[in-house]
């Protein structure tokens, strides 16, 4: 970032007054020691157990982890769209431009959803309302947040649909979600999410439901929009291959904790946690064609009964006595690299 300008200074699309939220030194989001648990009939599922990370303007953070590791819950806690109950946030802060979202009055927080922080989901078909035209659903952002009238907001919707490269946007603005292909639907979700020019965009497995070729198109669209608008982008995925080209940093999650965090190429080249290594080994690589994938054995832990010590120890080949008793903290093991493994140095040596 050469200049950290006031957000929304130079874009014609954003008809809003400058936001009252202005990042300090480009720092948009600070998640600080966040905990989330679910109170269910089966007990208390500890879904998030002390997650911390920052997000800056123009930065892309990938959150990587197996299904059930707490990626979506983290995103929904940031958005404030968890159902509480059953969810509960016993501790932690989520600061947006210095304001703690978790203690903010609900109406004030609601107004940040859309104009400040926005989110897209995995399954665009079920995430769009089936009974309203897509243009109407995009235009709703302008009508409810900006008070624009029907025709103005529909005009904006058409322009956004054009921006996300939906062919014949003007003719299709009145079509319904089921009349589009999966990739086009996800573009509509993206158009809706960026409508009010948010500073932070969270994409929760945006391409998981799509064909491989469409996946690549959606990822490059996200990258393009992020650079154009200097958004902070959080890309959630269980597939490192999908985000490797786009992400700057990667945070690897396991059982509701960040177990490793580093720049994308460092992690790719040399993982610093046995779990990350397991994840990398399960990606098919061109240079290892024909070899069987060595996925990690075993299953993620039951979140109502997370093992003592390192949560990964029952599945870890390197696990030692200390791993079953002491919880390894996330620590800097090399400059710019953090890992929550007692034996991180050994793992890095390979």
């Amino acid at each position: 970032m050469s200049t950290i300008s006031t957000r929304r200074g130079n874009r014609a699309e954003a008809a809003a007054a400058p936001s009252k939220y202005q990042p300090q030194d480009g720092l948009l989001l600070e998640v600080d020691d966040l905990f989330v648990e679910f109170h269910t009939d089966d007990g208390v599922a500890k879904a998030i157990n002390g997650v911390s990370f920052d997000l800056r303007q123009g930065e892309t953070l990938a959150i990587l982890g197996e299904s059930g590791s707490g990626k979506s819950v983290t995103a929904q806690a940031i958005m404030g769209i968890l159902d509480m109950p059953p969810a509960k946030i016993p501790a932690g802060q989520v600061r947006y431009c210095g304001h703690d979202l978790l203690t903010m009055p609900e109406d004030e927080r609601r107004k940040t959803r859309g104009p400040e922080i926005s989110m897209i989901f995995q399954d665009a078909l079920s995430s769009l309302n089936p009974v309203f035209p897509v243009g109407w659903q995009i235009a709703e952002m302008f009508r409810k947040h900006r008070g624009l009238n029907k025709s103005e907001s529909l005009d904006r919707a058409v322009r956004l649909m054009e921006r996300v490269q939906i062919p014949a946007a003007k003719e299709r603005v009145k079509a319904y979600p089921h009349q589009f292909s999966g990739g086009m639907r996800q573009r509509i979700m993206i158009a809706m999410a960026i409508a009010l020019d948010p500073a932070v965009l969270i994409a929760d497995e945006p391409t998981t439901a799509l064909d491989v070729t469409v996946q690549a198109q959606i990822m490059s669209l996200l990258e393009e929009l992020q650079q154009e608008r200097e958004m902070g982008l959080i890309l959630i995925t269980h597939d490192l291959g999908v985000v490797a080209d786009v992400a700057d940093k990667i945070a690897v999650m396991y059982a509701g904790r960040i177990v490793e965090r580093a720049d994308v190429y460092d992690i790719y080249a040399r993982p610093g946690h046995p779990y990350t290594r397991g994840l990398l080994d399960s990606i098919p690589r061109l240079d290892q064609k024909g070899q069987t994938l060595s996925a990690i054995g075993g299953l993620p832990p039951n979140l109502t009964k997370i093992p003592a010590g390192c949560a990964f120890n029952p599945r870890c080949r390197m696990a030692d006595h200390v791993c079953r008793t002491d919880l390894p903290p996330l620590r800097e093991v090399e400059p710019g690299r953090e890992s929550a493994c007692h034996f991180a140095e050994e793992v890095l040596r390979g």
């Binding site: 958005m79 769209i81 609601r110 107004k111 399954d123 079920s126 709703e140």
Partner: peptide
């Protein structure tokens, strides 16, 4: 419980609009 209701919340719509309309 539907996904599009979660989307409506994520769009910053009021609870009454999320439930009463969507």
């Amino acid at each position: 419980r539907a996904d599009y209701v979660r989307t409506a919340k994520a769009k910053g719509l009021t609870t009454s609009r999320t439930i009463g309309l969507h």
